[in-house]
């Protein structure tokens, strides 16, 4: 195991199965504040489930997840852990957000409103302040000229860049990126990844990524976790893992991904 700088996010004995299919099996790992961690592995190995659990979209069957000392699905009542109330979940969740594979922009809101809606109505930011920041973020992702477009008028790559701006607008401590370029053509994907590279450089947000873009993963991450059948089988720096993988399963997986691209 490599060292992590602190334990900002901790998975402790997390188990999840869908019917008979065990997706995550007694998972333990932690991520330090500001760390960028890429999760790789064959499909169905549980990577996306980890992100979805952190986003409270999928509930673990057993185990605990904590963010900066606060449990996500539990709260302390005296010295006992009880299931968390909606208010508690919302409090912890306020530090986390996610960018999705299929963008999930709100079609009923124009581009700028997609970005400002949560700051205004969830964080309580004044409207003009939120709009100024929203414009700035859209400028940053190269869409300063599309403020009043409908999402349906944008290409996939543009929609995903709006989604990134929308996620940054809520000022998260943790940014989850779930296969954000899998639905895009390679050329378009490269543009989106460039935006993310800039963000990784210019902020200290903690990132968990699930991606098949290995070069990108190598560039931005501090650590790579290789998943297989619901378990972490290798946890190493990108140099170590991509150049000298220890596990045979990791080797064969990397070979198949490289053949593909």
């Amino acid at each position: 195991m490599t060292t992590t700088n602190g334990e900002f996010i901790t998975f402790d004995g997390v188990h999840k199965s869908f019917g008979k299919n065990v997706v995550l099996d007694d998972l333990h790992f932690s991520v330090g504040a500001g760390e960028r961690v890429t999760l790789i592995g064959p499909s169905g190995s549980g990577k996306t489930t980890i992100l979805r659990m952190l986003m409270t979209l999928t509930r673990p069957d057993r185990g605990t997840i904590s963010v900066d000392g606060d449990y996500l699905y539990h709260e302390k009542s005296g010295d006992q852990l009880v299931p968390a109330s909606e208010a508690h979940i919302r409090k912890v969740r306020s530090r986390i957000t996610m960018v999705f594979q299929h963008f999930n922009l709100f079609p009923n809101m124009k581009v700028l409103r997609n970005v400002t809606e949560a700051p205004i109505h969830v964080l309580g930011t004044p409207k003009d302040e939120a709009e100024a920041k929203g414009k700035e973020l859209l400028e940053l992702v190269g869409l300063g000229d599309k403020l009043n477009a409908h999402p349906s008028q944008l290409s996939g790559g543009q929609q995903q860049r709006v989604a990134i701006a929308r996620a940054l607008a809520v000022d998260p401590d943790v940014l989850l990126l779930d296969e954000v370029t899998s639905a895009l053509d390679p050329e378009i994907a490269a543009e989106v990844l460039d935006v993310l590279r800039d963000i990784a450089k210019s902020t200290d947000v903690t990132m968990l990524l699930v991606t098949h873009a290995m070069k990108f993963a190598r560039d931005v991450s501090h650590r790579v976790l290789m998943f297989n059948e619901g378990k972490i089988i290798e946890d190493a720096s990108p140099e170590q893992l991509f150049n000298e993988p220890e596990h045979d399963r990791t080797k064969s997986f990397l070979r198949s991904v490289i053949d593909e691209s």
């Binding site: 986003m55 969740r93 957000t97 809606e117 949560a118 109505h121 969830v122």
Partner: peptide, 23 residues
């Protein structure tokens, strides 16, 4: 309404009422 819409609303930490009303 596609489930991704509800998931995005959760990811932005909307309240249950806001999810319904805004999204």
């Amino acid at each position: 309404v596609p489930p991704g819409q509800l998931e995005a609303a959760i990811a932005l930490n909307f309240t249950p009422v806001q999810r319904l009303r805004k999204v």
